[in-house]
C-alpha cells in the first residue's frame, strides 16, 4: 500500500505535485515573514483577517470541485460554498469592527 503510494508520488513528482510543493514551500515562508511584529492592539483584527483569507482560498477551489451533479455531493458542496463565503464576508466585517474598536483609522 505504502509502496504503491510512494510509486505514485514519484510518478506525480514531475507534474502537479512538484509545482504545488514549490508553491506551498515558498508561500509558507512568505506567510511567516508577513506576520513578524504585531502590536497587541491588533491581535484580534489580524486573526480575523487571516481566517478570512484562508476561507477565501477554499472558496476559490470550489467551482472546479463540483456541484455539477445533483445529489448528496452537490448538496454538500453547496453548503460548503455557503459556509466558506460566510467566513470571508463575516471575517472581513469582524476585522473592520475589531480594528475600529482598537483605535485604528
Amino acid at each position: 500500500m505504502i509502496g504503491e503510494v510512494m510509486g505514485e508520488i514519484a510518478g506525480e513528482m514531475t507534474g502537479g505535485l512538484l509545482i504545488s510543493l514549490y508553491l506551498f514551500t515558498l508561500a509558507a515562508f512568505l506567510g511567516m515573514d508577513v506576520i513578524r511584529k504585531v502590536p497587541p492592539t491588533l491581535y484580534g483584527a489580524l486573526a480575523a483577517a487571516v481566517g478570512a483569507a484562508a476561507a477565501l482560498a477554499v472558496v476559490v477551489a470550489l467551482p472546479s470541485a463540483g456541484a455539477s451533479r445533483p445529489g448528496v455531493a452537490a448538496a454538500l458542496t453547496t453548503v460548503a460554498v455557503m459556509i466558506g463565503s460566510a467566513g470571508v464576508v463575516g471575517g472581513l466585517l469582524r476585522l473592520r469592527r475589531l480594528s475600529h474598536k482598537r483605535g485604528g483609522k
Binding site: L17, S20, A28
Partner: peptide, 25 residues
Amino acid sequence: MGFALGNPIVVAVGGLTTTAGLSLS
C-alpha cells in the same frame, strides 16, 4: 485541496495563511 485540484493560487494562499496563522498564534 489546492494540491488535489491542481489549483496553484489555492496552494499559495493556503500555504501563506497556514504559517501566517501559526506565526500570529
